[in-house]
């Protein structure tokens, strides 16, 4: 282990917290704008294992926002480009890659020995499926989504239906029209990792049964509640 690697995590994270992170295994579903930054931050803060899931290859239009995309990596699988970069950042993290789209029946395989899942998908329908799978497998989920200047982020624990309630309607989000600039995924990914770290070290996340509505145009961050409902 590289001496001093995690020295600047200290005080924010106790030694016990850091050790919990260094024992943890995290899956990131979607390795685009959000997923790339989430993976980067988790590798830097120090987890044991990352499972990256994405069935897509890098293209030129990804360069505006996806940290794993470089001019040299165009055409590579997103998860491969991510693994290459993450190994340069922190070779002590085991990076497992899955060059497939997330599917319900693959959940058990994909999330084998995983402690936490990040939803960094770009499909509303698949987000709902992912929450269902996480609940079945008793896995905590941090979800985030972006479109233009805007984003949403929250935590869904087994028995919550935050993702279903937020993303259960409609086929496609407004990002199809408004696109995704560089800053929005970086902000929402960081907020996701902050919540995810709390879950991994056993602290209480701030955004359970709620979501944070992020507006980078007006710089307003507003929290909304999704109180539990009778199923």
């Amino acid at each position: 282990m590289l001496e001093g690697r995690y020295v600047r995590n200290q005080e924010t994270l106790t030694d016990q917290d850091q050790n919990k992170l260094l024992a943890s295994s995290v899956a990131i579903v979607g390795c685009g704008g959000l997923g790339g930054y989430i993976a980067e931050e988790l590798a830097r803060i120090g987890v044991r294992r990352l499972v990256l899931i994405d069935g897509d290859r890098l293209e030129v239009s990804n360069l505006n926002r996806q940290i794993m995309a470089t001019e040299e990596s165009i055409g590579l699988w997103k998860v491969e480009a991510a693994r290459d970069r993450l190994q340069k950042v922190n070779s002590e993290v085991k990076v497992d890659i899955i060059k497939e789209w997330f599917e319900e029946e693959r959940g058990t395989d994909f999330f084998n020995e995983v402690d936490l899942v990040f939803d960094a998908l770009d499909s509303l329908a698949t987000r709902v499926v992912l929450e269902r799978v996480c609940h079945q497998l008793k896995l905590p989920l941090v979800f985030a989504s972006i479109a233009g200047w805007y984003g949403q982020i929250g935590v869904s624990l087994p028995g919550d239906f935050s993702v279903l309630r937020l993303y259960g309607h409609g086929e496609r989000g407004v990002e199809s029209k408004w696109g995704n600039p560089a800053f929005t995924p970086a902000v929402l990914a960081s907020l996701s990792v902050a919540e995810g770290v709390k879950l991994l070290i056993g602290s209480i996340p701030a955004l359970r049964r709620a979501w944070l509505q992020v507006d980078l145009l007006t710089m307003e961050f507003e929290r909304f509640e999704l109180p539990s409902i009778e199923p």
């Binding site: 509303l124 989504s145 993303y167 409609g170 995704n180 999704l226």
Partner: peptide, 26 residues
């Protein structure tokens, strides 16, 4: 008033209605 409802939900005097578009990108 902070509770999620469907479009047929009847409104009362003093209600606050908050409307959000789908934000689904990653």
């Amino acid at each position: 008033n902070g509770r999620d409802v469907n479009a047929q939900h009847f409104l009362n005097d003093g209600d606050t209605i908050a409307l959000f578009p789908p934000v689904g990108g990653g």
